[in-house]
Design a protein around this nucleic acid. Sequence first.
DNA 1: AATTACTCCAACCGCTATTAC
DNA 2: AGTAATAGCGGTTGGAGTAAT
Length: 229
Amino acid sequence: MAYQGDKLRKGSWLEEEDERLTAFATLLGERKWDSIAILSGLMRSGKSCRMRWLNYLRPNLKRGHISAEEEQIVIQLHGQWGNKWARIARRLPGRTDNEIKNYWRTHLRKKTREEGNSQSKVYSSKPELLYQNGDSKYSIRDHNSADDHIIGTTDFSLEHYELPCMTYLNSSYETTLYDWIPKLSNDQSQSETHGEGSGLDWCFCDPAWNSEDCDPGSLDSLDSLWDMN
DNA sequence: AATTACTCCAACCGCTATTAC
DNA sequence: AGTAATAGCGGTTGGAGTAAT
C-alpha cells in the first residue's frame, strides 16, 4: 500500500497539500485515491485524500451556513430516513454528508428533541417510527425505549406533525423540482403535481416512500438541476 | 487576566458494499 | 467463485475558538 514503512501524515491539511491534491484529483479523476496519494507525493492515505476532496476541495461545494430552507429539508428527510446522511446530502446540492451530520448533531438534534417533547414526535424519529397497519392507521413506535414498543396509533396526516406536505415548495428549489417532474412521469400534468397528495408530494411525504423505488436513471439524470451556480 | 466549560466542525476510524482481477 | 483492493457510509474524536466564571 501507499508509503508502507513511511509515516503517513494525519490531522489538518495545509494549503500546499490542498493545492497538490486538487491538481492531482483534477488530473487523474475522482477515483483511485491510493494512486492519487502516491503519485501526488502527499504523505496521506488514499482514504484521507478522498475525504478531503469530497468534504472540502471539490468544486460546487457550498460553504457557509445552512439556510432555514435547507434545515427544513434536513429535518423532513431525517424524519423519513433517519441517519442516512449521504442520502440526505444528495438532496442538498453542494452540501456534504459530513456537514449535514455535524449540523444535525450540533443544531437540530437538540432542537427537534425540544420540539418533540412539546408537540411533534416525528421530527426526531427514525424512519420506522411511523409504519402503516393493515388499515389506514399508522402506529407509532418508540425507538428510544429498550423494547421498541408501539406507543400509539393515529390516522396519518402531515398536519398532525405540523409539517406542511412540501414545506419547500415555495423555495428556490421549487422551479427545479417541478422542471423535472415531467421526466418522472410523462402523462402526469404539471398542474396535477401541485395537487395535494399527488406525484411529487407522495414521493417526499409518504413515510413509506423509498427513493430507490423511483427509476434511478430518471433521478441520476437530474444531477445537473441541483447545480445552482 | 486566567481558567474552565462548551460548541462546532474537520478529520479519523471501523465497518460494509462494490468493483476489479 | 474467491479474493483483494477500493469506495462509501455513519459514528466518534480532537482541537480550535468562544463564552462563562
